Amino acid sequence: MGSSQSTETEFEYGKPWRDTPWRKKDYLEKTLKEFELSDPNIKYARILVVGQIGSGKSSFINSVNSVFQRRITNEALVNKTTDRSTTFTKLYKTYHIRNGQSVMPFVLSDTMGLESEDLHGIHTEDIVKAMGGYIKERYKFNPESSITPEDEGYRSNPSLQDHTYCLVFVMAADKISLADDDNIYEKVKYIKSKADELEIPQVMILTKPDDACPLVNKDLRKIYTSKKIKEKLKEYSEHTGISVSHIFPVKCYHEEIDTQNDMDVLILRAFKHIEQMANDALRLKCNENKNSE
């Protein structure tokens, strides 16, 4: 008994350090499905998804759609191999969030993965351009150089519809430490600084929490009693400047054949936060645009 209590104290807090509405999946889903943008002239608020290679960007996009479809979806192609050394996504692609046969007023735009080495993975300036709406759909990223106005995929006059209203960083919790990957941190901090200049809010999705913590692997509901997961949130916050309150550990769908309540709740909770921040940014942007006319 004493050994068991000692083990629990070592790896787990006595009570959750963040409240989670485990029994309110239907309420969360209903609230999000009924969400309306602050400006009726904007059809979709764009959410830009970026992250380190192998972190699960595309899996997160698929998981959001899976929750609302109530079945496993795979619109955003995912690398099924165990090789996480090179990026899989090459094109700039936008995905609608489907609510049955209709679509919700938000879109998720996927990007090439970040890599620590220069001339590999997405060029950070391409992410900056995407935030401003300058990159067209299906543009093929070039790791060696950023897009220019002379490129076919460049949009010269982006509309409010093309702008990004929330930037979502996707990072993996199962990394032992990123101490040896300072270049990734530097790239994330640079992208964040540019998003701050554009007044675009940022959220971080922390994937693979079950691979990072044995407690969570056995019981997903221990995600907010796990000391390991809280340490990871603090680590990423300290190295990137993103507030802990804006970091959400989420288990994405990748081997399941049916959706699961607890996974859905974590995804919905995170997406509700993203939606609200995007809508606030959209309101400010539209007001500024009206005042400048």
Score class of each variant (00 low, 15 high):
residue 72 I to G: 10
residue 99 N to F: 05
residue 124 T to W: 11
residue 281 A to M: 07
residue 91 L to T: 01
residue 67 V to I: 08
residue 129 K to R: 13
residue 83 D to S: 11
residue 200 I to K: 10
residue 10 E to H: 03
residue 256 E to W: 05
residue 88 F to A: 14
residue 174 D to C: 01
residue 92 Y to G: 01
residue 243 S to G: 12
residue 182 D to T: 06
residue 114 L to D: 06
residue 109 S to I: 01
residue 164 T to E: 10
residue 118 D to T: 09
residue 162 D to I: 09
residue 286 C to I: 00
residue 264 D to Y: 02
residue 160 L to T: 06
residue 132 G to A: 15
residue 7 T to F: 11
residue 211 D to I: 05
residue 186 E to T: 07
residue 193 S to Y: 11
residue 83 D to K: 14
residue 148 T to Q: 07
residue 56 G to Y: 06
residue 49 V to G: 10
residue 111 T to P: 00
residue 118 D to I: 12
residue 88 F to L: 09
residue 77 L to W: 01
residue 187 K to I: 09
residue 177 S to T: 13
residue 273 H to N: 13
residue 160 L to W: 07
residue 134 Y to K: 12
residue 157 N to Y: 07
residue 158 P to D: 11
residue 27 Y to H: 01
residue 46 R to C: 08
residue 203 V to D: 13
residue 45 A to R: 10
residue 220 L to C: 03
residue 196 D to W: 00
residue 167 L to T: 09
residue 271 F to H: 10
residue 239 H to C: 13
residue 192 K to T: 00
residue 157 N to M: 05
residue 22 W to C: 03
residue 119 L to C: 08
residue 44 Y to T: 07
residue 266 L to H: 03
residue 8 E to W: 15
residue 225 T to I: 03
residue 66 S to Q: 13
residue 128 V to W: 04
residue 89 T to D: 06
residue 255 E to G: 07
residue 212 A to M: 08
residue 31 T to P: 12
residue 245 S to T: 12
residue 117 E to D: 14
residue 245 S to Q: 12
residue 200 I to L: 03
residue 145 S to Y: 01
residue 154 Y to K: 14
residue 95 Y to L: 10
residue 266 L to D: 03
residue 190 Y to S: 09
residue 48 L to F: 04
residue 287 N to E: 15
residue 11 F to S: 15
